[in-house]
Computed example of a mutant assay.
Amino acid sequence: MAAPELPVVLVVEDEPAQREVLAYNLEAEGFRVARAENGEEALLLIEEETPDLIVLDWMLPSVSGIEVCRQVKSKSDTRGIPIIMLSARSEEVDRVRGLETGADDYVVKPYSIVELMARIRAQLRRVRPAAVGGTLEFGDIRLDAESHRVYRAGEVLKLGPTEFRLLATFMEKPGRVWSREQLLDRVWGRDIYVDTRTVDVHIGRLRKALCRHGGEDPVRTVRGAGYALG
């Protein structure tokens, strides 16, 4: 099983060969990949998986890529997911339509896989910086994902791998309240069973590590909802 902290990229492409080429290259880059061959399947997967990024073909059977994009961007819980639209339509009016519908980037077919991978990484740096080797800061806390180190007020903190992933999740979206179930999906992954009480145990360990050298506890408990940073 891939490390649960890795970003999930949903590839929506009705051409099997193109879909598998994209999936192969994404997996080679270390991403987890979900696949959909039409718009209806894509919308169901988006609801179930909540991917970190969507690579979306314009021309799809049943529900078009444009309509999938419109629906994703119209919902508060999914509008933040970056969408890279793929299309053979190269006219300016088509690019404008795709971007105005909510796509974050627009790539014309045929495209360079190397360039597309670079565009995907650029979008993921914006929404999942810790997962692609970025550095995150919140107050006096700094998380360096590339070196896998965490500092608070200049002091190095010793965190276990689970606590590191928890902190990275919090620091990518400060202020957001995460339920225990959402943290289980993001930090432990969907493929294994972990009791929700395990989240509380690791939150306790994270809090202890963060406050080891002094300072206030930055992790907030939201009664009946979950946890948030700040």
Rank of each mutant, 00 (worst) to 15 (best):
118 A>N: 10
158 K>C: 03
49 E>R: 13
43 L>E: 05
227 Y>Q: 07
64 S>D: 12
134 G>V: 02
79 R>G: 00
95 R>H: 08
147 S>D: 12
164 F>G: 02
198 T>K: 13
90 S>W: 04
28 A>N: 11
29 E>W: 08
227 Y>D: 09
11 V>C: 09
130 A>M: 03
68 V>D: 04
200 D>A: 12
198 T>V: 15
176 R>Y: 11
36 A>R: 05
221 T>V: 11
200 D>G: 11
206 L>T: 04
167 L>P: 02
52 D>L: 03
218 P>F: 04
122 A>K: 12
151 Y>M: 14
120 I>T: 09
155 E>T: 02
229 L>R: 09
201 V>R: 15
203 I>R: 09
212 R>C: 00
65 G>I: 06
14 D>E: 07
213 H>K: 10
84 I>N: 07
180 R>N: 09
161 P>S: 10
181 E>R: 15
5 E>L: 03
87 S>V: 03
113 I>Y: 12
5 E>M: 13
79 R>W: 04
91 E>K: 13
156 V>Y: 08
141 I>S: 03
9 V>W: 10
17 A>F: 13
57 D>R: 01
141 I>K: 03
28 A>Q: 15
170 F>P: 02
17 A>S: 15
87 S>M: 01
63 V>Y: 02
173 K>A: 13
149 R>A: 12
99 L>K: 07
6 L>T: 14
148 H>A: 15
217 D>Y: 02
31 F>Q: 05
44 L>N: 13
187 V>E: 04
106 Y>Q: 07
203 I>P: 04
212 R>A: 15
79 R>A: 09
49 E>P: 00
32 R>V: 11
100 E>P: 00
120 I>D: 04
29 E>T: 01
43 L>G: 06
212 R>W: 09
198 T>R: 13
139 G>R: 11
188 W>N: 00
7 P>N: 10
38 N>R: 13
102 G>A: 01
134 G>Q: 08
110 P>C: 03
170 F>L: 10
153 A>Q: 12
45 L>P: 06
90 S>T: 04
61 P>K: 00
106 Y>G: 07
181 E>T: 14
129 P>Y: 13
145 A>L: 06
70 R>P: 00
190 R>H: 12
47 E>L: 11
54 I>S: 08
212 R>N: 02
6 L>M: 14
66 I>Q: 11
54 I>T: 06
230 G>C: 05
143 L>M: 11
5 E>S: 14
158 K>P: 00
145 A>S: 15
141 I>P: 03
202 H>N: 12
21 V>K: 06
117 M>Y: 00
171 M>P: 05
50 T>Q: 14
148 H>N: 14
131 A>D: 07
110 P>Y: 03
200 D>F: 01
144 D>I: 05
148 H>S: 13
201 V>P: 00
110 P>L: 01
200 D>I: 01
145 A>Q: 12
81 I>T: 13
89 R>E: 10
134 G>C: 07
144 D>S: 07
80 G>F: 02
40 E>K: 14
207 R>E: 14
39 G>R: 01
